[in-house]
Computed example of a mutant assay.
Amino acid sequence: MTAMKKYLLAWMCLQLPVMAQAATPAAAKPERPAVQVPEADRYARRCQFQAPHRTVKPQGTMLWGTKRSWDTEKTAPELSSVLVSVDLAPLRQADAQVKALTLEGGRLVASGKGVVGTVLQGTASDGKPVEVAICGAEPSPEDPGMIWYRIEAWNAVAQEWENPCVALDRVPDPRALAVGGTWDASGAHQDAPGKLTFACENGAITKCIRWGYKPWESRDGHSLADLHQACTRMARADYCGNGRSHTHQDTAIDMYDRLGVLARTTEAADGWDPARASFEAAWAPDGATCLARTRDGRALETILKECPNRFQTGAALELGQGDRCTVRRADASPATALLRNMSYGAPKGASASEGP
C-alpha cells in the first residue's frame, strides 16, 4: 500500500465519528420558563422594538384593537384584552424633567419634557397590572392636535416588551390614540378621571375617531362623545349593547348621522356601491334602536334571543329616506337614534357563526 493510500485511509477513519454525530439528530431541549427580568433591566429594554409581532387572527371587529392574550396558544373571549386602561399617575418611569402627564383632547402633555420613554401603569381585562411604555409620538397629518403613539406593553409571559396592538395586512405596525375614559366588557364607555384608553388603529374606538367622531370635540354646540360611542356599537354590529359583535373584519359599511358629520353616500366609489347596499340599523350609545336585518346574515330571531325583551316585533317602521325597520327597541324610540348605517349584507348561502 502506498503512502498516499495509507494517509487517505487514516483520514477517513478519523472522519467517520464526526460524520455519524452530524447525522444523528440532536435531542430536543426541554422548554424552560422565561427568566424573570429585574426592574432596572426591564425599563432599559423598553422601546427597542426587539419583540416580534405575533400572528393573531381576531374574530369579528375588535373594540380596543389589542391582543386578547399574550398566550398565542390560548383561545381568549372576544372582549378580553392584554390592555384595557392606563393610569395617568403615578408614572412608573419617566425622564427626570417629566413629573406628570395630562390628557388634552387627543394628546398627552408632559409637565416638563416630551412623553416618549415614559412608562405608565395599565390594566388588562382580567384586572392584572401591565406596564405600558410610550415609544413614539407622531402628530396626525389630518389633525395636528391628535397624536399617534407607538406603545409597548410588558409581556410577562415572554418577559419582553411587545406592541399590544393587533397587526393586520393593511396596518402591519399599528399605533394607538389616547382617548379619555375606559370601556368595559359590555362595550360601554365609562368616564374615569385619571384614566385613559390606548386605542389601537385596527379597533372600533380608533376607527370611529378617524371617521370624524372625536369624543373630545363638539359640533354646533353638541358633544360628539355620544355619537362616538354609538359608532363603536355600529362598527362592531353590537345590536344588543352587550359587547358581542355580529360582523366580520373589513365588512363594508356606510354611515350617516343626525349632526351631519357624515352624510349618506349616494354615488359609487372605490370599495362602496350604494346600489348593492341596504339599510341595516339605527344606533344609540347603548346599541341598536331598530334593525332591518343583521350584517353577518344570521336570522333576526337569534338577536331577539340574545337580548330578550329588548326588541319588539310588529308593524314595520319607516325612518325616512328609504330606511325601514322590522324590529324596534321596546324602551327607546328609533327616531332618537344618533346615526344609521347601510351594508351589503352576507352573501347568499353564507352561514354566520353563533359564537362570540
Rank of each mutant, 00 (worst) to 15 (best):
Asn163Gly: 12
Ala94Pro: 04
Gly136Asp: 14
Glu162Val: 13
Ala137Gln: 04
Ala176Glu: 02
Pro308Phe: 03
Gly271Glu: 08
Arg107Glu: 09
Glu354Ile: 05
Pro77Arg: 07
Asp296Ser: 04
Phe279His: 08
Ala178Trp: 07
Ala225His: 06
Val132Pro: 07
Thr336Asp: 15
Val327Met: 05
Ser278Thr: 14
Gly221Lys: 01
Gly314Met: 00
His53Asn: 08
Thr232Arg: 02
Ala158Pro: 00
Ala51Gln: 11
Arg328Met: 06
Ala299Trp: 10
Pro274Ser: 09
Trp64His: 13
Cys231Asn: 05
His248Ile: 10
Gly122His: 04
Ala337Cys: 02
Gln36Pro: 04
Thr251Asp: 13
Arg264Asn: 11
Ala277Lys: 06
Gly243Cys: 09
Ala350Thr: 10
Asp87Cys: 13
Asp331Asn: 15
Lys6Asp: 06
Thr232Ala: 10
Ala199Gly: 05
Lys99His: 14
Ser333Tyr: 14
Val56Asn: 06
Thr123Lys: 14
Arg68Pro: 03
Glu354Phe: 11
Glu217Trp: 09
Ala299His: 14
Asp331Lys: 06
Glu201Leu: 06
Ser140Phe: 08
Leu319Glu: 05
Val86Ala: 08
Gly187Ile: 12
Trp272Ala: 06
Val261Gly: 03
Asp226His: 09
Thr302Arg: 03
Leu227Ser: 04
Cys231Tyr: 07
Ala89Cys: 08
Pro274Leu: 00
Val82Leu: 03
Cys47Tyr: 10
Glu301Leu: 12
Lys214Met: 13
Ala20Phe: 09
Arg264Gln: 14
Glu78Leu: 14
Asp173Leu: 14
Gln121Asn: 14
Leu83Asp: 11
Ser80Phe: 08
Asp126Gly: 13
Gly221Ile: 01
Pro58Tyr: 05
Pro347Gln: 08
Cys325Pro: 06
Gly345Met: 02
Asp184His: 03
